[in-house]
């Protein structure tokens, strides 16, 4: 197979085409689709709403949207997906967060008023500095970055989201994993009083996810605390969530209360729910279908036609090496 490796310094068409030009082509495409779809008004409108970076180079949700801007964010254009952002409106109203209900619009409704202060995170297992830390203390002094990542849901839709957060590696270095640690396990808050979706056992609560230690230490792996330059809204996993852009969205566990360094591959929620459908790795892979649907294409929110899904969601250069020699059909 011929693989063309794009170096970080290589320019793409998007870099070299004036923005006005591709914007007009996009709206032309969307316009054509609109006539065909009947629903196209919506598609074109949401595409128009895609927001460019605001002052200081940090993405802006648009007038009147979102909370107060977070201070001191360093943009990382070198890691940014060169595609238009998915509008704030879509990012914050179309969510899979079963702790707040299984409908896409449930979390935005049911998470209103979810209290994230105070918030503690327990770090345990094979670390030199275990403990239950206040979130602010745990992250204190680690520089926040803006990372514009593609997000590919296992269901076949995708978004481009300007996250704010810190590399997970920075936090792990702070708590000092011992030589025995091979995996990192993450756990979401389990509190049915505050998370009404947990009243029904759709999944085996608390939601648990995991990464191999080298995946966790990869510079792309992010612990997000914000989106669009603002604090995370609760429906997006406030106050602390994982973002692993080359894996399906369900790996990016939300509202984290426990991070454990462990020796064995931890059990993860969806893999326990349907082991033949969801694996531990869950790398985005257009060649390995979900048993019930194809993963070859995806619908980018705001677009009409499905687009090709990229190997490792377009992050192959940075992460393919982690899986050298592994049969990705077996380790799905």
């Amino acid at each position: 197979m011929l693989l063309r490796h794009r170096r970080p310094w290589d320019l793409t068409e998007n870099d070299t085409t004036p923005e006005a030009l591709w914007a007009s082509r996009r709206s032309f495409l969307h316009g054509g689709a609109a006539l065909l779809a009947g629903a196209g008004v919506v598609v074109a409108a949401s595409a128009r709403a895609a927001t460019p970076a605001g002052a200081g180079g940090i993405a802006d949700p648009g007038p009147g949207l979102g909370g107060l801007p977070l201070p001191g964010i360093t943009p990382r254009p070198d890691l940014a997906a060169p595609e238009p952002l998915t509008p704030w409106q879509a990012v914050t109203t179309y969510n899979n967060f079963y702790e707040f209900g299984t409908g896409k619009d449930d979390p935005a409704r049911n998470a209103v008023g979810f209290k994230t202060e105070p918030w503690t995170v327990t770090v345990d297992g094979d670390v030199a500095k275990p403990g239950t830390y206040d979130l602010g203390r745990l992250l204190f002094g680690i520089g926040q970055e803006e990372r514009i990542y593609r997000m590919r849901c296992v269901e076949g839709w995708s978004m481009v989201i300007p996250w704010v957060g810190i590399p997970l590696a920075e936090l792990l270095k702070r708590v000092e994993p011992t030589g025995d640690a091979k995996f990192v396990r993450f756990e979401t808050l389990h509190d049915p009083k505050r998370m009404p979706g947990q009243a029904w056992k759709v999944l085996d609560w608390p939601y648990a996810e995991g990464l191999r230690l080298d995946e966790a230490m990869n510079p792309l792996t992010l612990l997000a605390t914000g989106v669009y330059g603002r604090s995370l809204p609760p429906q997006n996993g406030a106050p602390l969530r994982l973002v692993v852009p080359w894996k399906y969205g369900f790996k990016s566990v939300k509202s984290i209360v426990r991070i454990s360094l462990v020796r064995e591959m931890p059990g993860t929620s969806w893999a326990r729910q349907a082991p033949q459908e969801y694996g531990f790795y869950a790398n985005v892979n257009p060649q390995v279908d979900h048993p019930r649907w194809s993963q070859a294409k995806e619908r980018r929110i705001g677009e009409f036609f499905r687009r090709d899904t990229l190997m490792f969601n377009g992050y192959a250069d940075a992460v393919a090496g982690l899986y050298a020699g592994m049969d990705l059909r077996k380790w799905y």
């Binding site: 779809a37 629903a39 919506v42 598609v43 409108a45 949401s46 409106q89 879509a90 109203t93 179309y94 896409k104 619009d105 935005a108 839709w157 619908r299 929110i301 009409f304």
Partner: peptide, 10 residues
């Protein structure tokens, strides 16, 4: 904010 508008086809 109507979720119908986000992924209308689905």
């Amino acid at each position: 904010g109507d979720p119908v508008a986000v992924n209308p086809i689905e």
